[in-house]
Structures are given as C-alpha cells and as structure tokens.
C-alpha cells in the first residue's frame, strides 16, 4: 500500500509539472494549448540525445535539454499562439493540434518511431525496515513540492508574478496601467513549456519514451486542469496530486483502468460544475 501511495505522489508530481503550464496559458491567454506537451516530448528526446554526450551525467543533460526547449517554445508562442488571441476556441484547438502533429512527425523523422529506454539516474533504494523505496521517486516528489512553493512565492512576491496574477483577473485593466501584458504572457508561456519539459525529463526514467508520449499525457493534464479549475494555481496543485493518487489506487487493483478512471473523474466533475469558456 505504501508503494501505491508513493507511486501516486510521484505521478501527481509529474502531472503537476505538466498541468501548471497548461493552466497558466489558459488563464492568461485564453488559449487552449494542445501543443503544450510537445515541449514535454522534445525535452525527453533532447535528454536522450545529450545523455551519451555528457558521459551519462543526468543533471547536466537535463539542464541543457530544458535550455533547448525554451527557444522552441518561444517560436511557437511568437508565430502561432500570439496570432490566436481572441480567436474562437475551435480554431485555437485545431491550430495547436496541427503544431502537435508537425512536432510529433519531426520527432519521428529525427529519432525514429521506436521507444527508447532511459535508466534510473540514481538507481539506489531507500530502506526503511522491510520496505524499499526508489529514491528517484522521492526526489521527484520533493522537487514538485519545492516548485509549488517557489511558484507561490513567485506569484505573490515578485512584481512579474503579481502582474501575471493581476492579468489572470483582468487583462484589460492591467493593460490600462500601461503594462505590456503580451510580453509577460509570452514569458508565462515559456515558463510553462519549460516546466512541461522538466516534467517529461523527470518522467522519462519511470515511463516509456515514444513519439506519441506527449499526446497520451496531454489528456491527463487537461483532466487535471479541468478538475482543478482553469487558471488556478492551488487548484491545479491539489487536483494533480488527487488524480495521481486516483491513478495509483486504480492501477493497484486494475492496472489497465488507471487512465480511464481519471477521465471518469473528469466527466463527473464537469457534470456537476460545467465550465463555460
């Protein structure tokens, strides 16, 4: 049972990394970003490329992979997302999905369609009595908690964070103060994409790496954002860990049903609290 809870926490942490960017993008720009997990897959593939170059140094290659993700997400924001401000949701949906298609195909082109294994970078286990926990999962969980508090601090204390939070409430009001909202929005977008890349890198040793990995996790991230409330930081945090726990508990008793259970939870939430967008 302890294993299940630990698995739930690490799954929740990964979901949090991915969903937070999606939630921020939606909250600030009102753009449903289907291309969000593209940076997730790109981060993982960059990691795979860099690891042999850096003599299996996980941290260095992860940092470099995230650095590569940032300009890519900037380009996506500048050329596609920025043109979609104020468009109807259908078109943003379709355009960002088109970016995903292009990205997935590029990944297939460069790295091939076959799954790549990534080994656990730490590989040691923590022993408490008879129980052993992989330390890696504990570290992932700790990073997620740290990130949550860091983001809270960022949005509460720094001026940039405050501007973004104010823009979440009332975009036009902030613009009337003479602040270039779009510049901050693109910053938020890049931050969200980098976090998604980080999530992908941290998930790579736990799960499998294949070109369509982004699409399958994207649906889970959407479920997290919808359950937690669009554009809400705390809501995303709690719903990520709740849904991670739901996945872990379902997987314990019925391994294939884990993802489906998340969607059932999402459908139930939507039934009682439909979101008008």
């Amino acid at each position: 049972m302890l294993y299940t809870i630990l698995y739930g926490f690490s799954m929740g942490a990964i979901l949090y990394f991915i969903a937070i960017g999606l939630s921020l993008t939606f909250g600030t720009m009102r753009v449903i970003n289907f291309a969000h997990t593209l940076t997730y897959s790109i981060g993982v593939y960059m990691l795979i490329t860099f690891i042999p170059l850096f003599k299996w140094n996980f941290i260095a290659s992860a940092a470099l992979a995230i650095l590569v993700v940032i300009p890519i997400s900037y380009l996506i924001e500048k050329f596609i997302i920025r043109r979609l401000y104020g468009e109807s949701l259908d078109y943003t949906f379709i355009a960002t999905f088109a970016i995903t298609l292009i990205g997935v195909d590029t990944i297939k082109w460069i790295w091939g369609v076959f799954p790549h294994p990534v080994s656990d970078p730490i590989g040691t286990y923590l022993k408490i009595g008879d129980l052993t926990f992989p330390i890696y999962r504990i570290i992932v969980f700790v990073i997620a908690i740290a990130l949550f508090f860091a983001l809270e601090l960022f949005f509460k204390k720094t001026i940039v964070g405050k501007i973004v939070v104010a823009a979440l409430e009332d975009k036009d009001g902030v613009r009337c103060l003479g602040i270039k909202v779009d510049k901050y929005f693109s910053g938020v977008f890049i931050l969200g994409s980098a976090l998604a890349g980080l999530g992908g890198i941290l998930y790579a040793p736990i799960g499998a790496v294949h070109p369509y990995m982004g699409l399958s996790v994207l649906l889970l991230a959407f479920a997290v954002v919808i359950v937690g409330g669009m554009g809400s930081l705390k809501g995303t945090f709690f719903s990520a860990f709740t849904l991670g726990m739901v996945m872990a508990l379902t997987a314990r008793y019925w391994s294939q049903g884990a993802e489906t259970m998340v969607f059932i939870v999402m459908a139930i939430v939507l039934m009682f609290r439909p979101i008008d967008i």
């Binding site: 949906f93 294939q256 489906t260 059932i264 939507l270 039934m271 439909p274 008008d276 967008i277």
Partner: peptide, 27 residues
Amino acid sequence: VVVRATGACFALMNLAFNFIGFFLVLS
C-alpha cells in the same frame, strides 16, 4: 451529459468518452 458543456469542455468531454469507449473494447 455532454451537451451541457460548451467550447473546449465539449470537445474534451467527447474526447474522454471516446477514450473510455476505446479502452472498453480494448481491455
């Protein structure tokens, strides 16, 4: 269930139902 939602929620709920159906026949 679905028609109560609009916009992106409508799309995503349909997606969720589709996923559930796909999963049901698969497993």
